[in-house]
């Protein structure tokens, strides 16, 4: 899950060339992404199980996977899930956690500006961390297959939805979550995501800031707003670190 967006002069040179957008490109992107989509499926099973444990139906979980297609945000929504559903908290947290996609979309711009609006804005729906990284590698190496993001994204989308259904069906079959230690499953998944997001020691300062503010806010504020506050504190700490 890297969000590197460096620009080199050669990139703009490459972007000057025409991009092709074809079914062949879709198919090639799809096939090349299958090994990655398989690992995404493991994650999808985890999401499905946890969604079912939180009381989300199989259909709702599948619908969420099909229309949102953003793993971390979906897991956070499950973490926040309660009755009545805290819509404001979920939507705000989803937006904040997904703000990284703004950068990822921006990084695609030199190539996607050569495609039609329908092609580019249709393709970005299928952006996930994994196929974005694959597509950036593809474009940077000089490929002109403009449909690559769409093809690779479709592979992820299909595996993600199917895995969600498999996970949700089996999750619903399991009884009391605490009996099997499943109350800890979401925490374990978040720890695994944090490991993936750890980009070296420069992450330490923003993460410590997030941790401190979240712990402090959790003890004084009601609800789950401490999550957003902690996230924003980490973001602010990083801005200060870079600007200083």
């Amino acid at each position: 899950m890297s969000t590197e967006t460096s620009d080199s002069p050669t990139e703009s040179e490459r972007a000057d060339r025409t991009m092709h957008f074809s079914m062949t490109g879709v198919r090639e992107g799809f096939i090349e992404c299958i090994p990655i989509a398989l690992s995404v499926a493991g994650y999808g099973i985890a999401f499905g199980v946890l969604a079912a444990q939180a009381g989300v139906t199989v259909a709702e979980a599948a619908f969420m996977s099909a229309t949102v297609l953003a793993g971390a945000a979906q897991l956070i929504a499950i973490e926040l899930w309660a009755h009545p559903i805290p819509v404001g908290t979920i939507v705000a947290t989803t937006f904040i956690v997904n703000l990284r996609y703004v950068l990822m979309g921006a990084a695609l711009q030199p190539w996607f500006s050569r495609l039609s609006p329908l092609q580019s804005y249709g393709s970005v729906f299928f952006t996930a961390d994994e196929n974005w990284a694959l597509t950036m590698g593809e474009f940077r190496s000089g490929s002109r297959r403009g449909a690559f993001l769409l093809g690779s994204g479709l592979a992820i989308w299909i595996f993600w939805i199917s895995a969600t259904v498999v996970g949700a069906v089996s999750g619903a079959a399991i009884g009391d979550p605490a009996r099997y230690g499943l109350d800890f499953a979401l925490t374990a998944v978040f720890i695994a995501i944090a490991v993936e997001l750890w980009d070296g020691r420069s992450r330490l300062l923003p993460w410590v800031a997030a941790f401190g503010v979240a712990i402090g806010a959790a003890s004084v504020l009601p609800g789950r707003w401490y999550i957003l506050l902690g996230g924003l504190a980490g973001c602010f700490a990083e801005v200060v670190r870079v600007a200083a």
């Binding site: 899950m1 971390a72 956070i76 947290t93 904040i96 956690v97 703000l99 990284r100 978040f190 995501i193 944090a194 997001l197 750890w198 980009d199 992450r203 923003p206 993460w207 800031a209 997030a210 941790f211 503010v213 979240a214 401490y226 999550i227 957003l228 506050l229 902690g230 996230g231 924003l232 504190a233 980490g234 973001c235 990083e238």
Partner: peptide
């Protein structure tokens, strides 16, 4: 850093 900071929080 936002996603990581949110997860940590």
């Amino acid at each position: 850093v936002l996603p990581g900071a949110i997860i940590v929080s």
